[in-house]
Design a protein around this nucleic acid. Structure first.
Length: 542
DNA sequence: TTAGGGTTAG
């Protein structure tokens, strides 16, 4: 009897799969590709598809290589298109997924039931409502609306960025609702702050899994309802790193740093391994309380976790932590060591320098950013204007303000105006500062008026100070600090009668000046508890 | 090869 020889194609496939399993970085991927070229597999669509999959989905940071490979394929198959759209949707540039989908349509490639969940994910990430609606139309046209994955992604899209009513109608109209549909809708209600509706859905869910619990807990933490979150957290049948991260991030966001650190301690003592997201929340906590030492330890841990590489998001958080903890040199070091930077990296370092009085360096970095053709955003200009204001560079500040409007077409927000008022006010250009407030496209807030009031105090302008105070009173009549400031303006000019009048007015309308206080770190018990999860730190005895 | 949960700055 002649034994059937193993199918050549399947043997090759097995060999390639083994090869791809060994691919853990770009170098290995390129070697596999080179061997494919040598062995004549470079035109084999199945092999190329796997190569694209490895570089777009499996190995992190190699989506760029996937694009290069893909661009050389004259007729990509649907699997390749799907892989590229999926990889782009989950990358830092989800916009590329939309570009790819558009190209796919133009080139006459027919999308399948895998294409739609991927492209919809990109629309959700970008919150591109019109595009998502268009895709919804395509789903209907191609008849994929009954596919569970497609329908669930549509529910998720509408719940997060479209219309909750559409999401609910899709959910209600489903013949079968699985746990994903329930959780997607619950998450949508929770995200929009409709916690009661979310909770009703959560309670009605016929089956709950870990994600459903995490959705509801996160819903509470994001709205600052930490007590409800904690209650659910204590009831949850099983926890994973996301459950812990949601609680830790919630406590940090609410400013309950001690609880966040206690939760972290509990997490590690129960054997749950923290991940990069945990570290991000902890960095934020360190930045909030100025805890440099723990921040440095998180930095070391991140270097270990990423084998010496630090992601953009962590780099940005580290820059923020170091600058808020007063170590601007380390912040710059992190910034300079980052292989990849985004606009937030520049913003963090430009803002950090500006707020720490390094105006010259801050502005220089901004100029370098422009030279490198990195497009600044509104936040960049807040940093630059703060730098100009601190350095008393009125002309430069004016120039950057108009650059922002005219060249970058960024509409100034209240913070930009606040910076301009501060800049002009510090320089003693009080009338101009007053006019600047008058020219704002939005209602000035108390901060803006208070900035002007402060400048009036410094420059002893009683008349404008009085006017600023009147406006301030309209906005918030119960802030004693503003009265004190006005009273001090009178006093600094020797106008004791005016000063006395303001104090009397405070008494009349019942404004009490709170006694001043300083925070003195008397007990670092929460930090003493801080047991840092790191292999190399385990010998530190914590 | 699909779908739902956690993350920095301002």
């Amino acid at each position: 009897m002649i034994r059937k020889r193993p199918n050549d194609r399947s043997t090759n496939r097995q060999q390639r799969s083994t090869l791809f399993q060994k691919c853990t970085n770009l170098r290995a991927l390129k070697q596999v590709h080179a061997s494919m070229v040598v062995h004549g597999f470079n035109s084999n669509h199945s092999a190329l598809g796997e190569l694209i999959f490895a570089s777009a989905m499996v190995i992190s940071g190699t989506i760029g290589y996937a694009h290069k490979l893909f661009d050389h394929i004259t007729e990509p198959n649907t699997f390749m298109w799907n892989t590229m759209i999926r990889g782009s949707a989950q990358s830092l540039k989800p916009l590329n997924a939309v570009v790819l989908y558009t190209q796919m349509e133009k080139r006459g490639s027919r999308p399948d039931d895998f294409t739609f969940p991927f492209i919809l994910k990109a629309c959700t990430k970008l919150c591109w409502v019109k595009m998502g609606m268009g895709i919804h139309g395509k789903v209907m046209r191609f008849g994929f609306q009954s596919n569970a994955s497609v329908r669930n992604t549509l529910i998720d899209f509408h719940a997060k960025c479209g219309d909750l009513r559409v999401a609910t109608a899709l959910f209600d109209g489903s013949a079968k609702r699985d746990v994903v549909a329930w959780s997607a809708l619950t998450a949508g209600y929770a995200r929009r702050g409709k916690l009661d509706a979310a909770r009703r859905l959560f309670d009605e869910m016929p089956v709950k899994d870990l994600v459903s619990w995490n959705v509801m807990i996160t819903g509470y933490t994001k709205q600052g309802e930490m007590e409800s979150a904690r209650k659910l957290f204590d009831e949850v049948p099983r926890r994973d790193v996301v459950t812990w991260n949601a609680m830790i991030a919630g406590y940090v966001r609410c400013g309950f740093i001690e609880q966040a650190l206690q939760m972290f301690e509990e997490m590690t003592s129960l054997g749950e391994k923290p991940d990069e997201v945990t570290m991000l929340s902890l960095l934020s906590a360190c930045a909030d309380i100025g805890e440099l030492e723990i921040g440095e330890r998180i930095h070391s841990s991140l270097l270990e976790m990423g084998s010496g590489e630090i992601s953009i998001i962590h780099g940005n958080a580290l820059i923020d932590m170091y600058s808020k903890c007063g170590s601007i040199e380390r912040a710059i070091e992190v910034f300079q060591g980052m292989r990849e930077k985004d606009v937030s990296s520049w913003n963090s370092v430009i803002g950090g320098l500006a707020f720490h009085g390094h105006a010259e360096e801050s502005v220089n970095l901004f100029e370098e950013m422009r030279r490198l053709k990195v497009r600044p955003d509104g936040i960049t200009f807040v940093g630059v204007l703060v730098a100009c204001s601190h350095a008393g560079k009125v002309e430069d500040g004016r120039g950057y303000f108009s650059l922002m409007r005219n060249e970058y077409k960024i509409k100034p927000n209240i913070k930009h105006y606040g910076c301009m008022v501060d800049l002009l006010g510090r320089a003693g250009l009080l009338d101009e500062a007053f006019d600047c407030i008058g020219n704002m496209e939005m209602q000035p807030n108390a901060i803006v008026w208070r900035t002007l009031l402060g400048a009036c105090k410094v420059h002893g302008n009683v008349e404008l100070g009085r006017r600023a105070n009147e406006r301030l009173l309209d906005i918030r009549g119960d802030e004693s600090g503003d009265f004190v400031l006005l009273s001090n303006i009178y006093a600094s000019r020797g106008e004791w009668h005016g000063a006395e009048e303001v104090r009397k007015l405070m008494d009349d309308i019942g404004v009490k000046k709170e006694p001043g206080f300083s925070i003195v770190e008397a007990d670092d018990s929460a930090l003493k508890h801080f047991c840092f999860y790191s292999k190399s730190k385990s010998n530190r005895g914590c």
